[in-house]
């Protein structure tokens, strides 16, 4: 079981690495152009750069060398920043993880609370809640971030403008990132809750004299959580995309910034490392989600045990 999981993970990582490598290879322009950038350009400079970065060898040889280094845990050196990739990412990883975990937790908590409060409250409450959720999902993070900054930081001075300076500085970026998550998950969760409340077991529970609140919290929630767990795993994996915007607006260090710079400047080693990292996180989170299914749904537990 475990061996199969690890095997799948390795395949996923290898496919991700290879696909990214091919995509960057197919992109127009050469890496030498990238390294030269705005700087001086001459055949001698080009030759020197190609030699320094092994770019004068065939793509296949470079690919093999890259995979070889990867297996040994060596991510290479950034073309742009002239430092080992592990160092570049390592310095920023913590801040993004912090942001992602805070945003995901906040998003999930918010959605559970919102869904519990609005379920079964009649069409009017649902309509208001639905509109708010839709606004959360569809408002660009850039705009949300700017509005939050203007009100809570520039005007009221409650939180620092930006950066990685303890919990206070984490609040606004995490809220910005959590709102669309909460909007999406609330809708899914409420729909699940309402469907579960129509099921025979809910009728039975009510017949046993349980109050409606208790039916929702103890019985229906468990059922409604299954699709949410699936979705939450997917959302967490996609947080990196949102982090790009949030990190830019709030001037926060993080992988999002690094990823964007690396892609626009074709800093191949960094792009590959970011993709590998996202793939690894995705694998880890979906494994975690699978485990959580078993916790949420006892039927799956027995199936795994058997």
């Amino acid at each position: 079981m475990l061996a199969r999981r690890v095997g799948t993970a390795v395949v996923v990582l290898w496919v991700a690495a290879t696909a990214t490598y091919l995509a960057l290879l197919a992109a127009p322009g050469s890496t030498v152009d990238t390294i030269i950038g705005d700087g001086a350009d001459s055949p001698e400079i080009r030759a020197q750069i190609a030699r320094e970065w092994d770019l004068d060898r065939s793509p296949l040889v470079q690919y093999a060398a890259y995979l070889g280094r990867l297996v040994r845990g060596d991510l290479g050196r950034s073309y742009l920043l002239q430092r080992p990739v592990s160092e570049v990412l390592g310095a920023q990883l913590g801040s993004t993880v912090q942001l992602a975990v805070a945003a995901a937790t906040l998003g999930v908590l918010l959605s559970v609370v919102l869904a519990l409060v609005t379920t079964g409250r009649g069409a009017w409450a649902r309509r208001v809640s639905g509109t708010v959720e839709l606004a959360f999902v569809s408002t660009p993070g850039f705009l949300v971030g700017m509005v939050l900054l203007n009100v809570f930081s520039f005007r009221w001075g409650l939180f620092p403008v930006a950066g990685d300076r303890g919990i206070a500085a984490l609040v606004l970026p995490a809220v910005t990132l959590a709102l669309p998550i909460a909007g999406l998950l609330t809708q899914v969760l409420r729909e699940g809750l309402e469907r579960a409340l129509d099921e025979p077991f809910a009728v039975t529970a009510r017949a046993r004299g349980l109050r409606e609140r208790a039916v929702v919290a103890r019985h229906a929630l468990r059922h409604a959580l299954l699709p949410v767990v699936t979705l939450a795993g997917w959302v967490f994996g996609g947080l990196l995309g949102g982090a790009v915007i949030v990190e830019q607006v709030f001037g926060r260090p993080g992988l999002g910034q690094i990823a964007v710079t690396a892609v626009t400047s074709q800093d191949l080693p960094v792009v590959l490392a970011v993709v590998m990292l996202s793939a690894a996180v995705f694998v880890a989170v979906s494994t975690l989600a699978d485990t959580l299914y078993a916790v949420v749904d006892p039927r799956l537990r027995t199936a795994v045990a058997a």
Binding site: M146, L149, N150, S153, F154, R155, G157, P160, V161, A162, G163, Q248, V249, F250, G251
Partner: peptide
Amino acid sequence: YRFLKESSVRVGALTSGQA
């Protein structure tokens, strides 16, 4: 030196006394 890429965020930091 704080790195703030967004110009409106830099100006906001200045008007609110954070820079």
